[in-house]
């Protein structure tokens, strides 16, 4: 009729080729779309993202803390308040009065942190903190931000997070745009065991299964 009749073995072979091609196509398109998504997302939200980074740096300088959301509906805040002797971890519902009380109790800039929470919520930023790293035995720090991008969720697959790192100084990259440890050393600088890629001289990204 309308379909050529193939011997069963050949038909099976053709089906297998079709499935393999489809899988490869899907894999390729997902890799490309993730890379495009990552840089495009950053430039589309650059003002908000750099605003969050700057606010966090200013507030962190007053009193060290880390901030995030513990659920994907962005209704529960998790805050880590860092002192010289101990770290306090609290979790609150977003409008719970205890949140403000706790910020006041630990002399944290309550208004600034509340604004930061709202900024983070607006672009689905799940976590922000300050990370130490070492270059030539010298301590340096970066701002680590993870975002839950709805666009790259694949059903039944582990969650993927869009991670941004903000450095104070320009960084070194190889020809493929991968973050290097130092200019003359071709060793990749990994953070949380992930390779990061260039967005600009001071900002890098990766897609990770770990949000912090």
């Amino acid at each position: 009729m309308g379909y050529p009749i193939l011997p069963p073995k050949k038909a099976m072979h053709n089906n297998r080729n079709y499935i393999v091609s489809l899988c490869l196509l899907l894999l390729f398109s997902s890799c490309v779309s993730r890379k495009v998504f990552s840089t495009k997302y950053y430039y589309e939200n650059e003002q908000t993202l750099t605003g969050i980074e700057q606010s966090f740096k200013t507030l962190y300088a007053q009193k060290p803390f880390s901030l995030g959301f513990s659920d994907l509906s962005f209704n529960y805040i998790s805050i880590e308040i860092i002192t010289d002797s101990i770290k306090y971890i609290y979790e609150f519902q977003i409008n719970e009065p205890r949140f403000q009380d706790t910020l006041h109790k630990y002399n944290l800039p309550a208004e600034g942190i509340t604004n930061l929470v709202n900024q983070m919520r607006s672009i689905h930023c799940l976590w922000i903190n300050n990370l130490d790293f070492y270059t030539n035995n010298q301590k340096r720090s970066l701002v680590f931000m993870s975002i839950h991008p709805v666009a790259i969720h694949i059903p039944f697959a582990p969650e993927k997070y869009y991670i941004l790192t903000f450095y104070s100084q320009p960084q070194y990259f190889d020809s493929e745009g991968r973050l290097l440890e130092r200019r003359r050393l071709k060793k990749l600088r990994k953070i949380n065991d992930e390779v990061f890629r260039r967005i600009n001289d001071k900002v890098c990204y990766t897609i990770s299964e770990r949000f912090r």
Partner: peptide, 9 residues
């Protein structure tokens, strides 16, 4: 302890 309710699986 740290990650909370981000993943279903």
């Amino acid at each position: 302890l740290y990650k909370k309710n981000h993943t279903q699986l």
